[in-house]
């Protein structure tokens, strides 16, 4: 399945050549999804803006290191993810990141479009999403926001594909369970 980023032609070669307009197009395309991903992980507006800014600066400086132009989106999210990890480390939350989950095969590949949510349930979904542990929330957000493949999510988060699979599996199961509990016992 192609990710959201891969369905469109992006001016990555022009950006590599230093074309400011190409960079503007790329950043305009990714600024909001990137911000959403970072914000849903760190829950701090200023910190999220700082991380997005640092990610953009780092991207301009290190674009030469991007081998596959098609992977620009996952490469950019990878930089942002590393910035988030650095921030968590600073806050001594490293133990949360080190959560290791057993390698379990995913039951079925569910794309973001398979999750259709009614308007009145949106807030509930966001609340439940925030209850998930960081590694699970991270993979689920990457799946939801940009529909990245398992391999791309693995590259972004620096985890094994099997780990990403199991995190995604547990995240979806946990979300479903929380959802069902919420519906069974509405407050």
């Amino acid at each position: 399945m192609l990710g959201v980023a891969e369905t469109e032609q992006l001016p990555v070669p022009q950006a590599k050549a230093g074309d400011a307009t190409a960079w503007d197009t790329l950043f305009r395309r990714y600024q909001l999804p990137l911000y959403v991903y970072v914000f849903e992980l760190v829950h701090d507006e200023q910190a999220s803006l700082d991380i997005v800014q640092e990610t953009f600066i780092s991207a301009v400086r290190n674009i030469g290191g991007l081998r596959d132009n098609e992977k620009f989106g996952s490469w950019l999210f990878g930089i942002a993810h590393q910035k988030c990890v650095q921030r968590w480390r600073k806050q001594s939350h490293e133990e949360t990141l080190r959560e290791e989950l057993a390698d379990m095969p995913i039951e079925s590949e569910i794309g973001p479009d398979d999750w259709l949510i009614r308007e009145e349930q949106e807030t509930e979904l966001m609340k439940l999403l925030n209850q998930l542990p960081l590694p699970q929330r991270s993979v689920l957000l990457l799946r939801f926001v940009e529909d990245f493949s398992l391999e791309e999510i693995a590259a972004i988060t620096g985890a094994q594909v099997g780990t990403v699979k199991s995190r995604l599996h547990y995240a979806k199961r946990a979300l479903r369970k929380l959802w069902e509990e919420k519906n069974e016992n509405p407050a």
Binding site: P112, L116, I117
Partner: peptide, 15 residues
């Protein structure tokens, strides 16, 4: 009905 992507992007549109 909306996808999670649409919900997330709409939620942070103000940024």
């Amino acid at each position: 009905m909306k996808t999670p992507r649409e919900i997330l992007l709409k939620r942070h549109q103000s940024a």
